[in-house]
Design a protein around this nucleic acid. Sequence first.
DNA 1: ACGCCTCGTGAAAGTAAGTTTCATCCGTGG
DNA 2: CCACGGATGAAACTTACTTTCACGAGGCGT
Lengths: 304, 304
Amino acid sequence: MAKSPKISASHEPGGLIVHISGLLPSLSPAEQRVARLVVADPAAAARRTITDLATAAETSEATVIRFCRSVGMDGYPQLRIRLAAEAARRVEPPDARVVGGDIPPGADLAQIIATIAFNDARAVEETAEQLDPATCEQVVEAIANAGRIDIYGAGASGFVASDFQQKLHRIGRIAFYFPDVHTALTSAALLGRGDVAVGISHTGTTSDVIEVLEQARTRGAVTVALTNFPRSPITDVADFVLTTAARETTYRSGATASRLAQLTVVDCLFVGVAARNRSRARKALEATAEAVLSHRVGANRRRG
Amino acid sequence: MAKSPKISASHEPGGLIVHISGLLPSLSPAEQRVARLVVADPAAAARRTITDLATAAETSEATVIRFCRSVGMDGYPQLRIRLAAEAARRVEPPDARVVGGDIPPGADLAQIIATIAFNDARAVEETAEQLDPATCEQVVEAIANAGRIDIYGAGASGFVASDFQQKLHRIGRIAFYFPDVHTALTSAALLGRGDVAVGISHTGTTSDVIEVLEQARTRGAVTVALTNFPRSPITDVADFVLTTAARETTYRSGATASRLAQLTVVDCLFVGVAARNRSRARKALEATAEAVLSHRVGANRRRG
DNA sequence: ACGCCTCGTGAAAGTAAGTTTCATCCGTGG
DNA sequence: CCACGGATGAAACTTACTTTCACGAGGCGT
């Protein structure tokens, strides 16, 4: 299936910066140096001439142009303008909060909280901005009409997969999640036309998930990938690609931010599916809510 | 050209457009034509090349340059960038996202996405705002020094509990999570002074979790509750109460927003604990990351 | 191991964009 | 009627941007 044209391809509205950091890992080393400069200070980059930027990134002008093309721009001037626009739009003076960065060693808890919350909230917002409604619509459509939905995810993404499974289950859709690769493979082999397989992987490089998704695809199921990196291997085996927009920070913080972003996307899909048949979904939800009622202890206290 | 002193270049505040239309009458006829085009549609002008703009204004490039100088810019590229920035800034803030409300029946997916993301992001931000650093500090302290940490949560909160467990485990803390109430009760009975028990429940009324937390407390463990409702029953059995701030919307959307908020709090605690011993935590994290490396497939693709 | 191929890269050639120079034009006042 | 000065565009010029090409490193099949 070679260089699949992909469905969501060119759509890159909201954050150019986000978009760039998303495909950062798919860029060549020299281009990455350029990308990092750009992401670090878009406004400054917009002011520089191409030669200037190339020098700063310790590379040639040619590479800068290649970088422009890689991120979907026609040329350097276009990039410059978009960059200027982006930079102007972001209103926030993030003062003390360390944007996208690591937590400074001496930080006190208040700082830590502020930093984490800021990055987490950003990941959610930016993910929503760059999410392509058209692609989502198609995925929702597929899920709503699927005979059965398999959801795959390993490690941290496994939680999200499981969450999605549970959500769909609660509105009466037949959905499965398998913590175990072998079981998942078996299940995938049983999928067919009209079924849907969703693979979740932050990096998009988790071989287990890719493998299972591929299996599902060869069986004729519609495959959906949810990843942070639009050019990662998992996108090769997916009919639809949905991306999150957690900026790559360190492994630690990035992990949670990306999880939140994934959950947000999942929630959007879920609500989209539920909205297709409001009354039935609502009824199903109420039924399941009732089911756990006996495990609830008397209401919250009024006043103290 | 030792002519008019012009408006002192470099510093001219926010409104470049305003500035230009202000000195419009002082410009020569040909320059005025240029100015009018620019003022009429700054964004479009920013996209044009100098030759293009000159043609559109029925004049020569030279005049456009003169115009640039007249309004205090160094040259055309500078003008372009400023223009792009200006145009971007005057972008209307979020249109009709239904704040905190339910999704309207006829909503299309784009609206749904915007609404969900907005509420999710808000939940995270507001949770962080109302989180008490002092309480967190004490909880972190307790966890960092605990002999062992038990984490309880049922249903959706179970995912969060599990996530927390995994996080702590990854930095070498001894932590447990039990999907099953009975096992959890057994475990709680084995806790003692110096141990920590964390109970997670969005509503704060989940009897299973409360019960287990109570058990843990009677055994002398430090008990921590994470809930959205500061007056809910679970707070009665907790030494420390941490609250999330997901606005109560409907059951459906509230569920995810509160999950995100919970995850954020958990992440804060986690980072707080990890920060207590950076080098060791970092080493542990790197080791665990390496462990899954063999399950990663080759890097992201270059180019499309 | 060998050679082949692909890919990333920068040097340099080529093209287009932006800037300067300068001659012309036109109205004005001597 | 002629000098004068400002406005203007053509063209020369410079700089910025883009393309082409050849080299070298790393991977892959024979």
